[in-house]
Amino acid sequence: MKARDNPFRVDRVLTLRYRFLTGSWDELLNRIDRQAGRGAIVGPHGSGKTTLMDELAKRLSRRGTPVHRCRFNLTDHPATWTNLRTATRDLPDEAMLLLDGAEQLGPLQWRWLMWWTRHLPGLVITTHRPGRLPTLIDCHTTPDLFCDLVEQLAPGTFPPEELQTLYEHHAGNLRLCLRELYDRMAVRDDDTTAKRSPAAALPAITRDA
């Protein structure tokens, strides 16, 4: 299968919206307001934290709140100080900072960030564990949620039992699950071709008596 035809290609996966297992957008936004614009989106890898943060940025912007995005991952760790200062250097005073990957900041970097952003109208982070800011929402996944997302992208392509096994294999990390489904779809046509009978693939050969 060509990449552009794969239902699990990146641009298709990015069309998936965050689904609340409990609560709603109104509840989340009200919680942010009650916590003076500060809080943490908590959850393990692949639980939808970044997807939720992306949508939060859009909703805050639509209601007139300027936002400034910043993201860190494992590859940033050796240069976190430099990246942190660069990311916050042009931070507008009136903007709410949305920081994805706060677990990459060490204690000193975190204390510096709290001091540097003390004047801002808000600071929302994503992190794997609670504790640094009051929790806004605890993100997690379920097998049913995974099956629903797959059905949205490629209806009827994979049986629920296969998806359940894949979900368990990746410990509920939907990012890894969807990436593996992309790989499976990429080789599906090749597998079908390879399983054809060689005799059926060749023209009939006749021989004179």
Rank of each mutant, 00 (worst) to 15 (best):
Asn73Gly: 15
Leu14Ile: 07
Leu97Cys: 11
Gln104Phe: 13
Asp100Val: 11
Gln104His: 13
Gly23Asn: 06
Asp144Thr: 12
Gly37His: 06
Glu94Ile: 11
Val42Pro: 02
Lys58Thr: 12
Gly101Met: 01
Lys58Trp: 11
Leu16Lys: 03
Leu98Met: 10
Thr141His: 06
Gln104Trp: 10
His128Val: 02
Leu97Tyr: 07
His68Phe: 07
Thr135Glu: 14
Pro130Thr: 08
Thr50Ala: 05
Gly48Met: 02
Ala40Trp: 02
Thr15Cys: 00
Arg19Gln: 11
Gln109His: 12
Phe8Met: 07
Leu108Lys: 12
Ile41Asn: 01
Asn83Arg: 14
Gln109Cys: 13
Leu21Ala: 09
Asn73Met: 09
Arg38Asp: 03
Arg62Phe: 13
Arg85Ile: 07
Trp112Asn: 04
Pro107Tyr: 01
Leu14Gly: 01
Met114Phe: 04
Ile125Glu: 02
Val13Thr: 06
Asp76Thr: 13
Thr142Gly: 05
Ile32Phe: 06
Asp90Tyr: 12
Ala40Tyr: 00
Thr142Glu: 11
Gly43Ala: 01
Val150Cys: 02
Leu21Gln: 13
Gly23His: 07
Arg62Ile: 09
Gly39Lys: 00
Thr15Asp: 01
Pro78Gln: 05
Gln35Asp: 11
Asp93Ser: 14
Arg118Val: 11
Trp25Met: 09
Thr117Tyr: 04
Leu145Ile: 05
Trp25Pro: 06
Pro121Ala: 05
Trp110Asp: 04
Arg34Tyr: 05
Leu133Met: 09
Val67Thr: 14
Leu52Cys: 02
Ile32Val: 14
Arg118Phe: 07
Thr142Ile: 03
Pro107Ser: 14
Glu27Lys: 11
Thr65Trp: 07
Leu14Phe: 06
Leu60His: 01
Pro78Ser: 03
Thr141Glu: 03
Ala40Met: 04
Val67Arg: 02
Ala57Thr: 12
Pro78Tyr: 00
Glu103Phe: 05
Asp26Met: 07
Leu28Gly: 01
Glu55Trp: 09
Val67Ala: 02
Trp25Thr: 11
Gly48Cys: 10
Pro130Ser: 10
Asn30Trp: 09
Asp144His: 12
Asp100Phe: 10
Leu99Lys: 00
Ala79Arg: 15
Thr88His: 06
Ala40Ile: 04
Leu74His: 13
Leu136Arg: 06
Ala57Leu: 10
Asp138Trp: 13
Lys58Phe: 10
Arg19Val: 07
Leu98Asn: 03
Leu97Ile: 08
Pro92Cys: 10
Val67Asp: 05
Phe8Trp: 04
Thr127Lys: 01
Leu113Met: 04
Ser47Gly: 07
Arg71Asn: 08
Glu103Ser: 12
Leu145Asn: 03
Ile125Arg: 01
Pro66Ser: 10
Pro78Met: 00
Arg129Gln: 15
Asp33Leu: 10
Leu133Ser: 04
Arg129Asp: 13
Lys49Ala: 03
Asp26Leu: 10
Arg129Glu: 15
Leu145Lys: 03
Asn30Gly: 15
Thr80Leu: 12
Phe146His: 04
His45Cys: 06
Gly48Phe: 05
